[in-house]
């Protein structure tokens, strides 16, 4: 590889941690206009906009919780995974030194923070070898507060009256977001997955968070449900930070996969407004960020 892979990944982290995507920023600006002027909801959204501008200008992390580092690598045939693992670990250590990341990897047994974001399965890297002639590295910084608001349901759920169909999915997503209140730093970005076993379902829900603002599902019934749910969630009145208001969620993204006949899981990956992820591609020794 002719490029410095480690440095390129440090830059991916810097961008993700400090520079908020414009389309999401516009969504927050629109939401701010939709709140009553002078209300706490309006103040909260305008403060968020001010914070986004400041973080971008100074390359400061938007939020001090720079999240758990999830990295997805798609690489061409013939390359070694260890090349990426070594560069990613070195990049994470460097990004922590430069304060693009807070030390967020704690030994579950001893409670000791590794202070550099590396450890057992930290950062969490998912490899996938594909048939393209280029590599793609995707980063998802998932905050701890919003991760605590994520949920998984086993349908049928008699308490909620949720059966094994899209109506049932709609019900459990409403329940999850209502339970979250403002705790996940609303307005949230809601990734939903239906099907798979428990682990695959949670993974697919999280991967929905890589979708672009306004990107509807290719399946018309899911696209419809995404729109309906966004209206449902915003009618709950939880509002930014749980202050009450019209904006509880910014987006709902739903994905499905096949399931065992006996199981029907729905996972909800709650992401805070501070959506921090990024994608870089490496083709012919050239790095592109998206």
């Amino acid at each position: 590889m002719g490029i410095n892979l480690k440095d390129s990944i440090v830059e991916l982290i810097r961008r993700s941690s400090t520079d908020y995507p414009k389309d999401w920023e516009n969504a927050i600006r629109k939401a701010a206009e939709n709140e009553e002027a002078g209300s706490s909801a309006s103040v909260a959204l305008n403060t968020i906009l001010e914070n986004i501008a400041l973080a971008r200008k100074n390359s400061y992390p938007m939020c001090q919780d720079t999240g758990f580092i999830n990295i997805y690598v798609d690489y061409p045939f013939g390359e070694r995974e260890s090349t990426y693992t070594e560069a990613i670990n070195a990049a994470v250590i460097e990004a922590t030194k430069r304060q693009y990341l807070r030390p967020n990897a704690v030994d579950s047994l001893t409670g000791k923070n590794s202070e550099n974001n590396t450890g057992v399965n930290a950062p969490a890297i998912t490899f996938h070898q594909w048939d393209n002639d280029y590599a793609r590295i995707r980063l998802l910084q998932k905050g701890g507060g919003c991760e605590n608001c994520s949920a998984q349901y086993r349908i049928p759920d008699t308490t909620l009256g949720a059966g094994r169909d899209l109506k049932g999915v709609r019900k459990v997503v409403i329940d999850a977001v209502n339970k979250a209140q403002g705790q996940g730093c609303a307005p949230g970005i809601i990734g939903v997955a239906v099907g798979g076993d428990r682990a695959a379902c949670a993974k697919l829900a999280k991967e929905q968070l890589f979708r672009k603002f306004g990107e509807r599902s290719a399946d018309t019934s899911l696209a419809e449900l995404e729109k309906t749910l966004l209206t449902d969630l915003n009618s709950l009145g939880i509002g930014p930070m749980g202050f009450g208001g019209n904006t509880t969620a910014l987006e709902v993204f739903i994905g499905t996969q096949h399931r065992h006949p006996a199981t029907y899981y729905v996972s909800v990956a709650y992401d805070c407004w501070a959506y921090r992820n990024g994608t870089m591609t490496i083709k012919n020794d050239e790095v592109t960020y998206a």
């Binding site: 400090t18 909260a44 403060t47 968020i48 001010e50 914070n51 400041l54 973080a55 100074n58 400061y60 992390p61 938007m62 939020c63 001090q64 919780d65 905050g143 507060g145 403002g182 730093c185 930070m241 202050f243 805070c272 407004w273 501070a274």
Partner: peptide, 13 residues
């Protein structure tokens, strides 16, 4: 007292 979650850069100022 509720602060604005996620606004870490601004609050640090």
């Amino acid at each position: 007292l509720h602060a604005i979650g996620g606004s870490g850069a601004l609050t640090a100022q």
